[in-house]
């Protein structure tokens, strides 16, 4: 069984079983492949250099739309324009955090630097956002319903399995964030 993250002399530490690490790695890989742009970067070296992507559109997949949301509520043209300027670098930023977290999954004993912890918390959050879309979590009642699935012997279909995985990643992220908040405490 995994142990909750905690903050101590060595920094933020945690423990995951090999099967749990494998699970996290495959979840992270899934999100990375979702985030990888369909087309390769712009042919024009200058637009590629500044990260412009004039072909980008609002994602049709709900989970991807949650990872890469519109920047305005009611102005699609402004959101699209912003997306053309920023989406590529946002995707790269997210993929970077996910890859950094995956790299840390090589050992059972986890010792996270402050930067590692930030990448882990971002990566776990993105994994949970995607799982939540797959589980159709739309409001707090849905979330509570999913939360009742805690016993792995209850896993009988894809949905209950996903719910258990979601609850595991939620628990892991919560313990990590608590440790991170603790590590921030003695600040001026």
């Amino acid at each position: 069984m995994a142990k909750a993250f905690k903050y101590g002399i060595k920094g933020i530490t945690g423990y995951l079983e090999p099967a749990e690490r494998e699970l996290l790695r495959s979840l992270i890989d899934d999100v990375i492949s979702m985030l990888q742009p369909a087309e390769s970067a712009s042919e024009d070296p200058l637009t590629a250099l500044i990260g412009l992507d004039m072909n980008v559109r609002e994602p049709s997949d709900r989970a991807l739309r949650r990872l890469l949301p519109n920047v305005t509520k009611n102005d699609d043209a402004a959101s699209l324009e912003f997306r053309q300027l920023t989406e590529r670098s946002l995707r790269e930023n997210k993929i970077g955090a996910l890859r950094a977290a995956a790299l840390g999954l090589d050992t059972n004993e986890l010792v996270l630097s402050p930067a590692d912890a930030r990448h882990w918390s971002q990566a776990l959050n993105d994994v949970r956002l995607v799982l939540a879309e797959r589980l159709d979590i739309r409001d707090d009642a849905d979330a509570e319903h999913v939360h009742t699935m805690q016993d792995w012997s209850q896993a009988e279909d894809v949905e209950s399995y996903l719910a258990l995985v979601y609850n595991f990643t939620t628990w892991l992220q919560e313990s990590l964030v608590q440790a991170m908040l603790q590590s921030m405490e003695p600040r001026g």
């Binding site: 949650r66 990872l67 890469l68 949301p69 920047v71 509520k73 930023n93 971002q122 959050n125 993105d126």
Partner: peptide, 9 residues
């Protein structure tokens, strides 16, 4: 958005 929060301007 990088942190996964849902933000608009």
């Amino acid at each position: 958005h990088g942190f996964g929060l849902w933000a608009t301007v």
